[in-house]
Design a protein around this nucleic acid. Structure first.
Lengths: 223, 223
DNA sequence: ATTACATTCAAGAGAATACTTGAATTATCT
DNA sequence: AGATAATTCAAGTATTCTCTTGAATGTAAT
């Protein structure tokens, strides 16, 4: 029975690596693109030393890899399958933990419409029959976004909504399954009388599908 | 930022529930079928009290549900998606943690052939062109197995192999992705000169596909 | 009712984990 | 080489987790 326990211990290592909110946020960030320790610490809201420790734990679990770039150490996700794992975790949570469903309902202030699939969005973008909003912060948008998307912060959504054509549907997306910006944006837009839906998944899932992504500043995050 | 942290805390709860080998074994057992606390404790090799605590933790995470049946409390998996989650965890581990790959290679004592898919096995069973071995313990086999499978313990595999037709390929399966019996059986059979492969996934995955499962004693685990 | 059984609860010891602080590395720039 | 910047290490504390033990609960049989 020893090899089996050894295997399970390794699997458990990965599960435990996902078992802390701060590490999930780190993974969510890394899913947007590779980053250095300090940038990650800022985004997630932890000290640099603490962030470094979390990242090392994630590395021991094989979920992230690092490379040196000058003075900095750049971390990135090892495996796209991790995105699927996190997404699945979210789906299971939503289905089996009533608290989660309540929180998500609360964000939408009522029942939200089904999200649009990535394939459908792709088709609609080609037709030009949708307005696409990227609700992530400006720097993440600059590192890569869906072609045709417009970056908006939640705080500026009301002003932006006033300028939008009321006839075309609005699609909002953000970082992925754990990110609540798109939920909140859709809720607000619907309050304002717009037809709005969420995209299923965020930019990382879009990218993992092999779909096109553009970045404003190709040289911003130097390689 | 409070709703987001609340959400992540719930997701983390599920991840942590998977973060202990004993709980993974419990889930692996429950994937075979529902069971009472004492039976689970025996199978997994922990005390009843400890088992009960683990099960309650799994329940808090929404992964299992329980019902009373007479004096006993019967636990079962809540959601088939949990199987997918565990399988994915294993795949990520195998790809990104070299230790895991080494252990799995070690079980096979060299490079093992690709497992056969469930769809392919299904077709081959209809043709009658394979011998199908169920490597799980007898009681689990009795609770449900793939039609046409023969139950064999690892310890009796050599004797059984001698009686097998050397011309038809042998397929072995067991509990699922975390179970090593099928790996070991295939390794041994190949040492003995047989053509043998593993089934991708175990009985729970077969059942989750909606494929046919038969049980020897329909009334053994009363409902 | 009393008894027996299966499970859960409660309390405690020991290990692992999360975060903080300050020092030690490692690589770059002058 | 020395100074600087980014990251990691190390040590300490508070918290959480795991397992054990023994008692308490709830259900069924006598």
């Amino acid at each position: 029975m020893t090899p089996k326990l050894a295997l399970l211990e390794e699997y458990a290592l990965i599960a435990r690596a996902l078992g802390a909110p701060h590490r999930m946020m780190l993974l969510e960030q890394l899913a947007q693109g590779e980053r250095g320790v300090e940038a990650l610490a800022d985004k997630v809201g932890v000290t640099v030393a603490n962030c470094s420790q979390h990242l090392q734990l994630l590395r021991r679990a094989g979920l992230v890899t690092s490379r040196r770039a000058g003075k900095s150490v750049i971390y990135r996700m090892t495996d796209d399958k991790t995105l699927v794992l996190m997404d699945l975790l979210g789906r299971i949570a939503q289905q089996n933990l009533s608290v989660v469903d309540e929180i998500l309902q609360g964000l939408s202030d009522g029942p939200a419409p089904e999200p649009i699939t990535r394939a459908e969005l792709s088709a609609r973008l080609n037709e030009g029959s949708v307005t696409l909003l990227d609700m992530r912060p400006e720097d993440e948008f600059a590192m890569g976004h869906i072609p045709g998307a417009v970056q908006v912060d939640l705080s500026r959504l009301d002003a932006m909504a006033a300028t939008l054509n009321a006839t075309s549907e609005i699609i909002a997306y953000c970082r992925g399954p754990y990110c609540v910006y798109a939920h909140q944006a859709v809720a607000r837009l619907r309050q304002l009388g717009h037809a709005a839906r969420r995209l299923d998944g965020g930019l990382p899932e879009w990218r993992a599908d092999g779909r096109h992504v553009v970045s404003d500043l190709a040289l911003q995050v130097g390689c």
